[in-house]
Nucleic acid binder design. Structure first.
Length: 828
DNA sequence: GCGGGCTTGTTACC
DNA sequence: ACCGGTAACAAGCCCGC
């Protein structure tokens, strides 16, 4: 028996003699590669109908214990059963815990449980790894002291063929009180190819970057540089790649979009060359699972596609308009890719190869640095949610919420709800949309001294304050039963969700309880962060913040185990009610409301002092229910709201503010929309800035005239006129062929990469400009020859971007265009 | 073949 | 299919005249 300190990094499982085992890869405190083999009880639940007595339950157990299932060459039987008092969706239930040999047969055995005493079967749809973590409490990225026996020669049919220094059969697990800092060994990689479709073309080079480690493997032109390793051919290069990875021995192998490109491309090329891409610690090849997106798993090494994590966890904080490596790295690291215009290898000049190698290397350098920068987020997310790093790096926010619930439900004695079946998802999706947030209809104008209030985590605090969830939702019958049993003090609340009324128990449910703990922790770590700024606490606080924000969406998401449309609709309804009441209260204090959207309210300070505004805020807070809280978001010198393009009413979700430090805050305007050309965006931005700074339109008008003159004289560079639109589906799927679809087609014909999610760039030219010509007929690729269409850019880009803003000052931009001297106030 | 209303599609706000 | 609804707006589509 040996004892080691161990941190679990990657989880896998296997069958041996019909039984399930977990195989956990990790390190000891000296950095040695360790593999643990362990097992846990395998069971699921049969929830009994309400009136089944203890005695009947015992009888049923006997019958269940006789069940046997034959499948896939093994026979699984029920090992034992136990009757337990559990909770299911907050209700007390009697349930039989059914222990079996092999988790894979849980479904089949569950199917055989067609006894009339049984109401529901649950927890047969959790993964073995999730079950294992729950049962044995060997949580990822946490240090443990492990006692166990060294696995020798033929144990588990030669499972020790794994390339690890120690393999242990676990006997005892105890968490270390003192948790040392864990620094994973990270290796980043990136490939370059001639084609962008998996299965086409060849690999040209592969770069690898780790700590004090950089290499570019290539079978193309020789280089005198040490870090550029020459290979005989593609096969040799792939072999060397595998060797280099094994030698470096990383915990994490990371790429950017590597699930979708680098790893499957490598795998396909290896196949074509009749060789194995045996990266796994047991020399297995990467395994790809086909979801909506390909996912590449390597045994023992955590393969992380950084793009996926950035998309789920980081994108909402990023200013970047795309999530390309270049933009994300430049925002988060302040470093960019090396410039390189893609061309086929046959067209690359001899002297250009060195540059191409450095380009390839830089991508891995950026990926490596990004992984380092995001590591605290990976670590904290993993520790909070308690699923393996591999899943954490890929799961959607709804899965993260769900996994948090699964790993924190034990103390509620709750049996876990099942995942909805295919047809159930279909039904949920067909349900009608419920009414959402309230948006205030603004009156267009320029306002002085604007104050913004907002509710902190509004939807989350509504869910907690009113106890809105699947387990607290009362069907009509239940509601009536409750109202009969306790007449004086109503033990439920009624919520009007527009199309009907719904009811929720006041007895706190686990969802609200968990969410209130999440919100509490978020507050706690935010406070700690203010005292002691550090990346780990920041990441932890952020993890709780994201969970808080996703909880509402989760309950309204059709794929959720704890989906509850009524709870989601009630959350929105109570938020609407709450903000409308707050608006009325603020009005009663003599303030004018100019805007409100979902959880924020804009009011005019008028002649009141800041102090008086804060006093009103205090008063409102004293009367808010539960944990709901209204905050001061900020004081602004000025703000502007404009009319919609059609009609005279004020546009919602479009406004611009300037704070006391002259910082602009622009929402919804073309300035912040990437599907408008830079010229229109920058012109609008400048005009908003002039207006908000000066409180009038004079300078803005001068500026606008100058831009128009420059455009009319073709003095504006083409790159300022490029319009960018994302391709959201394949070209064939489009019913309406808009300019960006035509351009995508052109690109494809040219052999350029065209993929879903790509941002297509184009400009509008003068060519084919007939009377009824469509815009798409004049759209051209940025490097395509042509004259940009001055009229189009004036009429469809510049003027629409500024006319509603200047209209606030009664300036008609169309008369400006005609060259007439048109100044403000002239018209009325 | 023209114009306006409707649909499709993208992006933003919260 | 992989979190919700609200909203603005461009461009294409389509139908009645």
């Amino acid at each position: 028996m040996v004892t080691i300190n161990f941190i679990p990094i990657d989880y896998d499982y296997f069958d041996y003699k019909g039984k399930n085992y977990a195989k956990i890869f990790g390190r000891d405190d000296k950095g040695k590669r360790i593999c643990l083999i362990d097992s846990c009880d395998v069971f699921f639940w049969a929830i009994l109908k309400d009136k089944i007595s203890e005695k009947k339950a015992e009888e049923l157990c006997e019958r269940i214990e006789k069940i046997k299932v034959k499948s896939a060459g093994r026979e699984t039987r029920v090992l034992k059963t136990e009757v337990h008092h559990k909770k299911f969706l907050g209700r007390d239930v009697k349930a039989i815990k059914i222990f079996i040999d092999n988790y894979k047969d849980a479904h089949d055995i569950a199917d055989k449980l067609n006894f009339h005493e049984i109401d529901k079967r649950r927890e047969y749809d959790l993964s073995y790894i999730t079950k294992y973590i729950l049962e044995k409490k060997l949580r990822p990225l946490t240090w443990y002291s492990i006692e166990g026996d060294i696995i020798v020669a033929d144990d588990f049919a030669g499972i020790n063929n794994i390339e690890v220094e120690i393999a242990l059969k676990v006997e005892k697990i105890s968490e270390l009180e003192n948790q040392p800092i864990f620094k994973p060994k990270i290796l980043a990689y990136d490939i370059e190819t001639d084609e962008f479709e998996i299965g086409k073309g060849q690999l040209l080079m592969i770069s690898l970057v780790g700590e004090n480690f950089k290499k570019v493997l290539t079978w193309k032109k020789n280089s005198s540089k040490d870090h550029i390793i020459h290979c005989k051919d593609e096969t040799d290069m792939i072999e060397k790649f595998v060797k280099e990875v094994k030698k470096y021995d990383p915990d994490i192998l990371t790429g950017y979009f590597s699930d979708g490109f680098d790893l499957p491309y490598l795998r396909t090329r290896a196949e074509k060359n009749n060789m194995k891409l045996n990266l796994g610690l047991d020399n297995s090849q990467p395994v790809f699972t086909r979801g909506r997106i390909l996912t590449g798993k390597i045994k023992g090494i955590v393969h992380i596609d950084l793009f996926r994590f950035v998309k789920v966890v980081y994108s909402q904080y990023l200013q970047s308009e795309t999530l390309s490596l270049n933009e994300v790295a430049s925002e988060l690291l302040g470093e960019r890719k090396i410039e390189w215009d893609f061309k086929h290898s046959s067209k690359i000049h001899e002297h250009e190869w060195e540059h191409y190698y450095e380009y390839n290397l830089q991508d891995s350098i950026l990926t490596y640095k990004l992984m380092g920068k995001l590591w605290p987020d990976f670590l904290e997310f993993t520790k909070v949610i308690q699923e393996p790093l591999f899943n954490i790096s890929r799961d959607s926010m709804s899965s993260q919420v769900e996994n948090y619930i699964i790993h924190h439900i034990e103390k509620f004695n709750e049996i876990i709800e099942k995942r909805p079946h295919y047809d159930e998802i279909g039904e949920r999706r067909e349900e009608e949309k419920y009414e959402g947030a309230f948006v205030f209809q603004p009156i267009p104008g320029l306002y002085e001294n604007v104050v913004f209030f907002d509710f902190t985590s509004m939807y989350g605090s509504v869910i907690v304050s009113y106890n809105l969830s699947k387990s607290t939702y009362l069907e009509k019958k239940e509601k009536e039963r409750i109202s009969k049993s306790s007449k004086d003090d109503l033990s439920y609340i009624e919520v009007d969700i527009t199309e009907k009324k719904v009811y929720f128990s006041k007895k706190i449910g686990f969802f609200s309880q968990m969410l209130s703990e999440i919100i509490e922790k978020r507050k706690e770590y935010k406070k700690e962060l203010n005292k002691n700024p550090n990346p780990i606490i920041k990441a932890r606080s952020n993890a709780f913040k994201l969970l808080t924000n996703a909880a509402y969406g989760y309950q309204g998401f059709f794929g959720a185990r704890y989906y509850c449309r009524e709870a989601a609709a009630a959350t929105a309804a109570l938020a609407r009610k709450s903000i409308k009441e707050t608006i009325e209260l603020i009005k009663k204090h003599g303030f004018k409301i100019v805007y409100s959207d979902t959880d924020s309210i804009a009011l005019l300070k008028g002649k009141s002092s800041k102090q008086e505004v804060l006093e009103v805020l205090d008063k409102i807070n004293k009367n808010l229910p539960g944990i709901m809280e209204l905050d001061l978001e900020g004081f602004y010198k000025r703000g502007i709201w404009v009319t919609k393009r059609t009609g005279d009413i004020g546009a919602k979700k479009k406004y611009a503010l300037i704070d006391e430090e002259n910082k602009l805050k622009i929402r919804g305007f073309e300035t912040v929309r990437r599907d408008w050309c830079n010229l229109a965006r920058e012109t609008q931005n400048k005009i908003l800035e002039f207006i908000l700074k000066n409180g009038n339109e004079q300078k803005a008008l001068e500026y606008l005239k100058e831009i128009i003159t420059r455009l009319k004289n073709r003095k504006i560079e083409l790159k300022e006129l490029i319009i960018k639109t994302q391709l959201k589906k394949t070209i064939e799927e489009y019913k309406a062929i808009s300019p960006h679809v035509i351009i995508a087609k052109k690109m494809k014909e040219k052999g350029l990469p065209v993929k879903i999610g790509m941002v297509i760039e184009y400009y509008i030219s003068e060519d084919n400009k007939g009377k009824k010509s469509l815009v798409r007929e004049r759209a051209k690729l940025p490097d395509e020859k042509g004259k940009y269409d001055i009229e189009y850019y004036l009429k469809n880009q510049i003027l629409p971007a500024v006319e509603n803003i200047l209209e606030v000052f009664k300036v008609n931009v169309h008369t400006l265009l005609d060259g007439k001297k048109q100044m403000s106030l002239g018209e009325f």
